[in-house]
Design a protein around this nucleic acid. Structure first.
Length: 307
DNA sequence: TTCCAGGGGTAGA
DNA sequence: TCTACCCATGGA
């Protein structure tokens, strides 16, 4: 087995900062993606077109004025143009290289104060190469602590992902077909997801059978409200998960109201007093279609002066 | 032991 | 639209 390396470079069209994008929220720590804070390298085991499993080592290159992304692809056997294109497309999607956030940046500058200190290129929240993976990961964040989310996703990858040949302990995120190929009872026994197992297994079945085309949604021009309806139709996806998934689809109109949101808003804006969800959400009403990013920046920056 | 987490489905009003 | 009640699992 001869390990080969192919290097690819991608240049973003918009202001971009690799580290703040990779480390924008917890997603980078969920298998089969990982992050090395010392080297600033995001690593991922990825299944490419045709089923070839490769290791991606993604890092920043270029300069702060003209940033670029370098992808080191480690592979066994040749990689053709189709695989290279697939890898570039997957990484560009994860890092949202084509997303234009200039309107949000302008709003922040106009608002002034701490809002104006948003670093250039910030606000690109990392996502998975497929919506299928993001829906499952989002369901795994509901009604559980973060440690439990990481455990469930790791178990899913270990149980049903495709092995990376040079290190078979490392695996890809499973395909819908792999998850649908085993009975629910077996799935529950292999991946301890609690009551979420039935939701996740049913989703895999619907996608594998072609009944549900999740990957059409990222390209969809549907209004956000209609997109939300499509997401809410997935069992296991409620208001919080739908808002999170809309964010991952580049729609920031809705806020993901969970215990973190409620606690943060209570501390930051109401002197520690818990208010109902409607009042809590009203804090970000002025941000229009950028509410989620405004909340994200607020939370990321932590308690400070209230503008 | 008891509580509850980065909630959601369902039934019944 | 709103409210109970239930849901598996594991950490605190």
């Amino acid at each position: 087995m001869v390990l080969q390396t192919t290097r690819l470079t991608v240049v973003p069209d918009n202001p971009f900062d690799f580290r703040s994008t990779a480390y924008s929220h917890g997603w980078v720590a969920l298998a089969p993606t990982g992050w090395n804070d010392e080297t600033g390298v995001m690593e991922r085991i990825q299944r490419t077109v045709g089923g070839q499993v490769v290791q991606l080592m993604v890092s920043a290159s270029g300069t702060s004025e003209s940033p670029a992304v370098e992808i080191e692809v480690n592979h066994v056997g040749p990689v053709g143009t189709d695989v290279r294109n697939d890898v570039v497309s997957a990484v560009a999607h994860m890092l949202r290289l084509d997303e234009d956030l200039s309107e949000f940046y302008s709003l922040c500058v106009n608002k002034g104060g701490r809002w104006a200190s948003l670093p250039a290129g910030a606000g690109r929240l990392l996502r998975s190469p497929t919506l299928f993976e993001d829906v499952i990961k989002t369901i795994c964040t509901t009604n559980i602590q973060w440690g439990g989310t990481k455990r469930m996703v790791t178990e899913l990858v270990q149980a049903l992902g495709d092995p990376y040949p040079p290190d078979p302990r490392r695996r890809t995120f499973p395909t819908p077909e792999a998850m649908a190929s085993i009975p629910l009872e077996t799935f529950q026994a292999q991946v301890r997801m609690g009551y979420r197992s039935a939701y996740v297994h049913e989703l895999a079945l619907r996608v594998a059978e072609g009944e549900l085309d999740l990957e059409a949604l990222p390209r969809s021009q549907l209004p956000t409200a209609d997109l939300k309806k499509e997401l809410l139709a997935i069992k296991g996806v409620g208001n919080y998960a739908a808002a999170t998934l809309l964010m991952l689809l580049g729609r920031y109109d809705e806020l993901g109201v969970d215990t973190v949101f409620r606690d943060f808003v209570a501390q930051q804006y109401f002197g520690g007093r818990r208010v109902d969800d409607k009042e809590a959400m009203s804090v970000y009403a002025e941000w229009g279609r950028w509410k989620y990013l405004a909340y994200w920046f607020d939370l990321w920056q932590g308690p400070g002066e209230t503008v």
